[in-house]
Nucleic acid binder design. Structure first.
Length: 484
RNA sequence: GGCUCUGUAGUCAAGCGGUCAAGACGUCGCCCUCUCACGGCGAAGGCCCGGGUUCGAUUCCCGGCAGAGUCACCA
């Protein structure tokens, strides 16, 4: 049988990385076997719905390469693929009524106030289990309430005794007491289905074979199982993915600042690096390999190798991986992406391509660029202590002398390019008995005012050009003369 | 608090009864080097605890403990 998986987000904002990974795994499970990956929009909560969120979902899926075979924009014959549209067609109510007829669900007219009174607080958390109050209503009473137009919901009727067992591909068989199963709402008073219900109905109607979701649904899975059984439907293969947590081992929340794909893109991460990184959070390949393109993941992915324990989202490693992608990146693409950041720091008419090349192996994320190259624009105010370097055997005094010595040489240098400059300075050093570092350190300091730079002295001379370089050296000589 | 899940270095994570317990990030050291980075080499660091089962447990079982998830007319 052809595998069919789905990604079923609710349009409430940016795409959480946990959801992104779930989508990725669902995609990989399907594609590894040549199956279908569908997109279904679960917009049953009109309150939480955010304008433009569907666009974000589409854009994210496109940027990450998780292209769906069926969805709102690609009819595969089991649509519509948007739950609010399905609701309009009366699909959910129709199925809910079937359950009522079977005694597997019932109408509930309880007021919000009554429901509120059922809540208790444990450890600061409100918990609530419905007491089946409305289950005792007679058919006539229900009819009458309905006729009166009283607001109602339809609840699942779960047994109070016995146990329910369901099977998860990763976690195995899980058995719970039915007494733990709340009579969850299937149809809300506004006529919309809850996630709990719509999910089951749609997964069945759309022929989903493998349900991939986060493991926060693990505890409600038995209730979904009972729904499938009540309908007489085949239960899909469940794959509950382990949670992704923050550094405190808590479920990753919006507050962490990097919880969504778009947050990460805003911070300068590459979509392919994020996908690669997230794939490895909770899954590992057979080999030691860590760098994977999406097609490679499709080839390698075996969902049986998904781990069961939660994984901390490690920004440090993501940064490393992003840096790896940047280093491997084709220069033209790199330059296109780097240019805006270079321009943020540099307004002079310098050769930005040369500067981009300097920075390519040194950044992990594009926003690292400005702080690394801003000295090209202007030498920052610096302490002359920078001229002291033990290994180079130099200090402000020697630096001053060196700069004075080397200044006329640079002024006379015809070929002001990196290689030529290096040769000239090296020759000068050999003549004087200076080591290369002894010469380069003061020059680089004078040029940049920085302890570390993304390039050597001669490369900086090259980019700055003779005029600006001499200006900076003169300024340094002046500064040093005043202080030494 | 009930229920459920999880428990290999700071983090990700191999392992599926016998291993000097892979690998990666990070950390530290060395090399390379006109600084830094890249690259190369190396080091430190781990099987939650207690019982079993077994000739032998990181691995299987039980019990603790710890962490997490969940207990909505949110998904």
């Amino acid at each position: 049988m052809k595998i069919r998986t789905r990604y079923a987000p609710s349009p409430t904002g940016r795409m959480h990385v946990g959801n992104l990974r779930t989508a990725l795994y669902a995609y990989l499970i399907a594609k590894h076997e040549g199956g279908d990956f569908l997109l279904r929009i679960e917009d049953t909560d009109q309150e939480r719905e955010v304008e433009g969120a569907v666009d974000i979902i589409n854009r994210t899926l496109e940027e990450t390469g998780l292209v769906h075979d069926e969805g709102p924009d690609k009819d595969g014959g089991v649509g519509p693929y948007v739950q609010s549209e399905r609701q309009k067609q009366g699909i959910y109510l129709e199925y809910a009524k079937k359950l009522v007829e079977k005694g597997e669900a019932y109408y509930c007219f309880c007021t919000p106030e009554r429901l509120e009174s059922l809540k208790t607080v444990v450890n600061g958390e409100e918990i609530m289990q419905y007491d089946k109050h409305c289950l005792s209503l007679t058919k006539e009473e229900v009819e009458e309430n309905l006729k009166k137009g009283l607001p109602y919901v339809i609840r699942q009727n779960n047994p109070r005794t016995g146990t329910t067992t369901f099977h998860d591909e990763l976690y195995g068989d899980i058995t719970v007491d039915n007494a733990e199963l709340d009579d969850m709402v299937l149809i809300k008073s506004d006529g919309f289905p809850t996630y709990n219900f719509a999910n089951v109905v749609d997964d069945h109607l759309m022929g989903i074979t493998h349900v991939v979701r986060g493991n926060e649904y693990l505890s409600s899975a038995p209730k979904y199982n009972r729904l499938y059984d009540a309908f007489g439907w085949e239960v899909p293969v469940y794959v509950h993915c382990p949670l992704i947590t923050d550094e405190n081992h808590k479920k990753l929340s919006k507050r962490s600042g990097h919880s969504s794909f778009e947050d990460l893109v805003d911070q300068g991460f590459l979509p392919e690096a994020v996908v690669n990184f997230v794939a490895l959070l909770g899954w590992s390949p057979e080999s030691d390999e860590e760098m994977f393109t999406l097609p490679e993941l499709v080839k390698e992915f075996d969902y049986h190798r998904i781990s069961k324990s939660p994984a901390v989202f490690d920004m440090v490693k993501l940064r490393w991986m992003n840096g790896e992608y940047i280093k491997k990146m084709d220069f033209e693409r790199f330059y296109t992406l780097a240019e805006p950041y270079l321009k943020k720091a540099i307004a002079r008419p310098l050769d930005l391509r040369k500067i981009a090349a300097m920075v390519k192996t040194r950044i992990e994320v594009f926003p690292d660029i400005p702080a690394m190259v801003d000295f090209f624009q202007e030498v920052p105010d610096y302490d002359t202590a920078l001229y002291t370097h033990k290994k180079m055997k130099t200090d402000p005094e020697k630096g001053l002398a060196l700069l004075q010595e080397v200044r006329p040489l640079l002024a006379a240098q015809e070929d002001f390019t990196n290689d030529a400059l290096f040769e000239a300075l090296k020759a000068f050093g050999e003549e004087k008995g200076y080591k290369t570092g002894y010469i380069m350190w003061p020059i680089r300091t004078a040029l940049s005012g920085r302890e570390t730079t993304p390039a050597g002295a001669t490369e900086i001379l090259d980019v700055l050009g003779r005029e600006e370089s001499l200006k900076r050296i003169d300024a340094a000589i002046e500064k040093l003369s005043a202080e030494v």
